[in-house]
């Protein structure tokens, strides 16, 4: 039995669903962020899998999936830094990290 693209796509889909469940269900804002990180990793696995099994394009375009993965990692790191700074700032002001209680913009 050889590895096919479907293995990696199904793995990415399963991981994406677990991350989505965590991002929807959790009440702690940091746990929501963890779910989002899992989702981004699932997308990265899918991208790298596509770039590995791509036999159609020329050689230089074959690594496009990996370049995409690098940019996703960059944006995910920036997003994690800003989101955690926001969570800490909100915690300092409201003494909570429960996303159900952070309702400053609700009227």
């Amino acid at each position: 039995m050889q590895l096919t693209l479907n293995h990696f796509l199904v793995l990415g889909a399963v991981l994406f669903c677990i991350g989505l469940y965590g991002a929807i269900v959790k009440r702690n804002a940091i746990a929501v962020l963890m779910g989002i990180e899992i989702m981004l990793n699932a997308v990265n696995i899918t991208m790298v899998g596509f770039s590995y099994f791509n036999t159609v394009k020329t050689f230089s375009e074959r690594l496009t999936g990996q370049i995409f993965a690098i940019f996703i990692i960059t944006v995910a790191a920036a997003e994690a830094a800003v989101a955690l700074a926001m969570i800490i700032a909100i915690y300092r002001k409201r003494a909570t990290v429960d996303v159900g209680e952070i309702d400053m913009m609700k009227w």
């Binding site: 696995i45 790298v48 770039s51």
Partner: peptide, 11 residues
């Protein structure tokens, strides 16, 4: 580890 399997060592 999955990336290593996909020969994406840099990633």
């Amino acid at each position: 580890g999955i990336y290593v399997l996909l020969s994406a060592s840099f990633i």
